[in-house]
């Protein structure tokens, strides 16, 4: 019985990993771009002239075969980092990306020390 389950599991997980798509989802890109003339809306959520233009350009670039990253890089170059909701992981933004995990690590170590303190028995 167990063996059958394990086989089933592997079959499915293979199926699952295989299905990861390679098509770029334009909707996802729009959600990750800020509409510069709106109040806190993404390009996906806005219907302004600006958002429509960006949508056209992004769709064109996907057709040209650009990757998601290249599209973000292009737009950052043109409008600044403000346009992407995901700040690029570079030297400047390393505090943002690494500090949470650093704190997590420190918290773990603190708990560990606290528990270690207790005498045996």
């Amino acid at each position: 019985m167990k063996i059958i389950i394990i086989i089933f599991y592997f079959f499915l997980s293979f199926n699952n990993l295989n299905a990861e798509s390679t098509v770029i989802d334009s909707g996802k890109i729009f959600k990750n771009l800020r509409c510069l003339i709106c109040q806190g809306q993404s390009v996906a959520d806005s219907n302004s002239d600006f958002a429509q233009t960006i949508k056209l350009v992004v769709r064109d670039q996907i057709k040209e075969g650009k990757t998601e990253k290249e599209i973000y890089r292009f737009l950052v170059e043109k409008y600044g980092e403000w346009i992407v909701y995901k700040p690029p992981l570079n030297k400047g933004n390393s505090i943002l990306w690494l500090l949470p995990y650093l704190i997590f690590l420190i918290g773990g170590i603190m708990i560990f020390i606290l528990l270690k303190k207790r005498p045996n028995g």
Binding site: R34, E81, Y85, K86, P87, W97
Partner: peptide, 16 residues
């Protein structure tokens, strides 16, 4: 500090 504007949005929170 750097006179530089960035946006931190859903992808950041989701990933972290």
């Amino acid at each position: 500090l750097t006179n530089h504007k960035v946006s931190v949005g859903p992808p950041f929170y989701n990933i972290v």
